[in-house]
Design a protein around this nucleic acid. Structure first.
Lengths: 166, 166
DNA sequence: GCAAATGAATTGACATGTCAATAGTCCGCT
DNA sequence: AGCGGACTATTGACATGTCAATTCATTTGC
């Protein structure tokens, strides 16, 4: 099954070689490990999950610490339903509050509570330090450029940055 | 404890710059998007999740399609409890079966059922094609080397490949 | 021998995600 | 008017993960 030694013209849809698969699995495992490591450390240090942090970051930068639910979903790049569930959990912990939107009865204004903002601020430096230690510190400046190029190539191939953003 | 070398403001423990943060967020978002894309496609094409596939891959390569639960956990790199939960779900779908180990009453032999092996074989080509299209195709051969270097640097920094593997 | 430590695997509680229905609102058109 | 369709957000069912007990089986020390 291993040799995909078919006739010319099939280079397009040939199956991955052993080496390509190795690189793929390495990429995947590494990314997963990195995310897990960061999440665990962050959670234990700050009592916020990565998701909580993203939400609070967006809200903290917004006018009156408030965003329409749909804008928030756009900013953090999540599906509606995921955001709803997450906001429900965050509301229970009193990190955010939800109120029907002033101008449109359909919409919902999501607002970071004082406690939410406070927790976010306290988490900020540990978060940045963790990013530095677990990610940035792995690379030389030149390698960091490689990282960027790799992400870019992947995004292009996935069709991100196309319709979704500014 | 590698760097005992810092006074305040030293380059060692400085916080990330805007550009570094951008690269980090890009890396993270891209990896997440890639995983999500692959999982969705794979699930819809083959009725197996990425986890199911990993488990079946390991079992399919094992003697008699059977592994001790602990060996399996080692091979796929999961925590025990995660594996237990996952095996429970896979057992309910009759992809695998569990029996108390022949030689040690503590252990459990996990075995891929015929149906499990069949499903795995059917999923194999779609899986490899998806990896090719969503990941490998994004890169030139030179870029692929960059990918590998990036993963390697990250793994080193995270201390993977140290105690865990061959 | 047998109680305590160790080890293997599971379990329960809960956090997080996805997908497919809802449930209201608003809008346009006859 | 008012009806149907598009838009906003939530909900429920379920898959997946983590962490902290818990259950048994084996080994160890006295």
């Amino acid at each position: 099954m291993a040799h995909a030694q078919h006739h010319p013209g099939s280079a397009r849809d040939r199956l991955p070689t052993r080496e390509e698969l190795r690189i793929w699995r390495n990429y995947l495992e590494t990314a997963e490990a990195l995310q897990a490591r960061l999440a665990a450390r962050f959670l234990s240090e700050t009592a916020l999950s990565a998701g909580d942090y993203q939400v609070l970051l967006a809200l903290s930068e917004a006018e009156r610490n408030t965003l329409r639910s749909s804008e928030l979903a756009e900013l953090v790049g999540w599906e509606r339903s995921r955001l709803s569930h997450h906001l429900g959990r965050m509301e229970k912990r009193e990190l955010i509050s939800r109120n029907t939107c002033t101008d449109e009865a359909r919409g919902i204004d999501v607002r970071a509570t004082d406690q939410g903002l406070e927790t976010f601020r306290a988490a900020s430096v540990p978060h940045l330090k963790a990013v530095h230690e677990l990610f940035l510190e792995a690379f030389t400046p030149e390698e960091l450029v490689d990282v960027d190029r790799v992400s870019r190539a992947l995004r292009r191939n996935l069709g991100l940055d196309q319709g979704g953003r500014k």
